[in-house]
Design a protein around this nucleic acid. Structure first.
Length: 257
DNA sequence: AATCGCTCCAACCGCAGCCAT
DNA sequence: TATGGCTGCGGTTGGAGCGAT
């Protein structure tokens, strides 16, 4: 795929915007809108690339931008949403009116990550591990801090899978109570399904949550055993728990019990 | 007053995905 | 189906600001 020439090759300006450039950009967008970012700087008479104009507008000049420090409520919302959605800054920003993805990303890296780590350290010293394991995004763990990699939907660890076994024997049972030796023929679900479903559920898209409900009714979890793979069961439970974390609606926890 | 080190944030870079042809 | 153009997104960086020494 061909790439557009970069600003320098085109003789365009980079770096901080001047008040005059801001004024020109605002004035042009107010008069003509921003249907075509690539054509905009030329039309407006700015020596900037479209990308730079778009970023300046979205992150700084837009009239609905909320300036100033984040409130405690906003920070808590970001933490909850990040736990549920991972590094999907634009998705998080969509739920915080007046805040941009760039701003949220910055506040996460400068304040919240640190704050969360301190909380986790404090909790691990004082509290025993909860029985119900919450799937956390790996970028808030010590490991990802060092690697910097952020997979969206981490595979459950062996300990997570074993959390739904029949206790001390570590043996999975089928609906008849017979031991399951292999999950080879059990249905599996693509990881992206869950992240998509969670986004939709949080957005209030009932079609998506209906899909999960149908999935659960196909694979009941309240039987003496499970007739789907442990991973599907675990993902179902994590899905509802993440919806609860994001929406705060306790009724979403009902399918867990 | 000068320097150093750290924090914060605006802006850039490169890639992925969508859409038109 | 393949290709090219464009936008949007997430990761990263550079430098201004500020406090400590």
């Amino acid at each position: 795929m061909g790439r557009a020439p970069c600003c320098e090759k085109m003789g365009l300006k980079k770096g901080p915007w001047t008040p005059e450039e801001d004024r020109i950009l605002i004035s042009h967008i107010q008069k003509h809108g921003h249907a075509n970012w690539r054509a905009l700087p030329k039309q407006a008479g700015l020596l900037r690339c479209g990308k730079s104009c778009r970023l300046r507008w979205i992150n700084y000049l837009r009239p609905d931008i909320k300036r100033g420090n984040f409130s405690v409520e906003e920070e808590e919302t970001i933490i909850k949403l990040h736990e549920a959605l991972g590094n999907r800054w634009s998705a998080i920003a969509a739920r915080l009116p007046g805040r941009t993805d760039n701003e949220i990303k910055n506040v996460w890296h400068t304040h919240l990550k640190k704050k969360l780590r301190q909380n986790q350290e404090a909790n691990s010293e004082t509290k025993p591990q909860p029985k119900r394991k919450v799937k956390r995004e790996p970028n808030i763990t010590t490991e990802s801090e060092t690697t910097g990699t952020v997979p969206m939907s981490p595979q459950p660890s062996s300990s997570e899978v074993s959390s739904i076994t029949t206790g001390e024997t570590n043996q999975y049972m089928d609906v008849k109570g017979e031991p399951i030796e292999s999950f080879e023929n059990f249905p599996e679900i693509d990881e992206s399904f869950w992240s998509e479903a969670l986004s939709s559920a949080v957005d209030g898209n009932s079609n998506s949550t209906n899909e999960i409900i149908q999935l659960q009714s196909s694979f009941p979890m309240v039987e003496p055993g499970y007739n789907c793979s442990p991973k599907v069961v675990d993902d179902c439970m994590d899905f509802w728990y993440n919806v609860f974390l994001t929406t705060g609606d306790e009724s979403t926890l009902t399918p867990l019990f």
